[in-house]
Design a protein around this nucleic acid. Structure first.
Lengths: 162, 162
DNA sequence: ATGAAATCGGCATAAAATGCCAATTCATCA
DNA sequence: TGATGAATTGGCATTTTATGCCGATTTCAT
């Protein structure tokens, strides 16, 4: 675990940059500079600094999963039989190899140990994934499925504090 | 609900473009063209087509929420007292106004109706959000909290089928 | 095989990114 | 309050990239 140097302390320009780039990740530097009220040079310098500081982790194209043919999203709560590091590490490695698994969270407060978010074509795919892949992983003692009826809020912009 | 024209049918170039842009959303068109083995012109044409077809929804900078000061992520399962459209619409509107709510899913299969993913600074913030904002929304009859101990898999790349 | 439509690569032009430097701003301390 | 140094800005020249157009090639159905 490598902690990065120092908390950079963001001013209003940086916060504005972060806000805009979270919504429009491919905006040109010139347009971005116009929006925040700086000339292109310092604007680009700031963006680079945010990237190198690790505050901006990367950029992503967002694709419409339904239009790609994945019409079913499910949340899967997984319980493990024994809570040993080996069991957990193995489960995580197995699950990471499944492309349908979009997200895997180790959680507390639920009866489950993990919550997976999986995206599949249809219920047949889901059944197959669940029975032939997930529940066969060593240590998995229980699984409970929830299906996503609608994405009310998808993935909002994190406000930069202060 | 406006359905878009026709399923474009993706070839290997399109699939390759989608895969790369999901990982490196700000890659230059020239670099992208090199990677997929096309010249810049047709490569850019394809990217534009993917954008206009709606398959690529947009681009996002990903920020490190912890480094922004949000060290606590929680999953909140919400139950509603009565399942009327008005109740649901109102709840969704209220929740959409809370910047801490990163995601809101209408779900089935759980005892809850919604799952929220919220990102806050600390437990005090969480308590405040839960007691003063969420549970006060009309129609909310129950709430159950899970806390994210670790993000095992964050947000993987959707593979383009066929 | 043949024609039409789709797609490609190359090229000229426009736009954007990048690096450098003088000028300006900001903060601190005498 | 004024001066000094550090940080940051804006402008400019240069390099890189994006964009639009067109002829050449490929694809496909007939």
């Amino acid at each position: 675990m490598t902690k990065q140097p120092a908390p950079p302390a963001l001013d209003r320009y940086d916060r504005h940059i972060l806000e805009i780039l979270q919504r429009e990740g491919r905006i040109s530097n010139q347009e971005l500079a116009d929006r925040i009220g700086l000339s292109p040079s310092p604007c680009l310098r700031r963006v680079r600094a945010l990237e190198e500081s690790g505050l901006i982790v990367g950029y992503r194209a967002r694709v419409d999963s339904r239009r790609l043919g994945y019409s079913l999203t499910a949340l899967l709560h997984i319980s493990m039989d024994r809570h040993t590091p080996e069991r957990f590490a193995n489960f995580e490695a197995q699950v990471a190899a499944l492309p349908q698994v979009q997200e895997c969270l180790l959680i507390t407060g639920q009866e489950a140990d993990y919550q997976l978010k999986v995206v599949v074509r249809d219920m047949d795919d889901y059944q197959n994934l669940l029975l032939n892949c997930i529940t066969r992983i060593e240590g998995v003692s229980g699984a409970h499925s929830s299906f996503v009826l609608r994405r009310v809020i998808d993935d909002t912009v994190l406000p930069a504090p202060e």
